[in-house]
């Protein structure tokens, strides 16, 4: 059984890779993918803590986070499709209508 710290380090790695992706990538779909990656990093930490503290709360929260992720993916992708219809592109650098 791997110690708790290893699970937590892996979770931190996943979360930070998600942060890097959100900052670096310019494609809206990939940015949403990276947000999913960050949520999964958090989920892993929840389950690992729950396992080592003999609690079910971690697994319950993961269940709710998955519902939020599903809703977020559905709405986010609908917005991406809308943007693509209007601008023929999903490049986030080109979505600057609010810029002066």
């Amino acid at each position: 059984m791997a110690p708790l710290e290893h699970y937590l380090i892996l979770s931190a790695v996943l979360f930070s890779l998600g942060v890097v992706g959100v900052v670096v990538r310019r494609n809206a779909i990939v940015v949403i993918l990276c947000i999913e990656l960050m949520m999964n990093g958090a989920n892993l930490a929840f389950v690992a803590y729950g396992r080592y503290l003999d609690s079910m709360a971690g697994q319950m929260i993961v269940f709710f986070v998955m519902a939020v992720a599903a809703a977020e993916a559905a709405i986010g992708l609908a917005i991406v499709v809308l943007i693509y219809r209007n601008r023929e592109s999903t490049d986030l650098d080109e979505i600057n209508l609010l810029k002066l």
Partner: peptide, 8 residues
Amino acid sequence: TVGAIAVV
């Protein structure tokens, strides 16, 4: 980790 790096 390899999967996550590949995503980015």
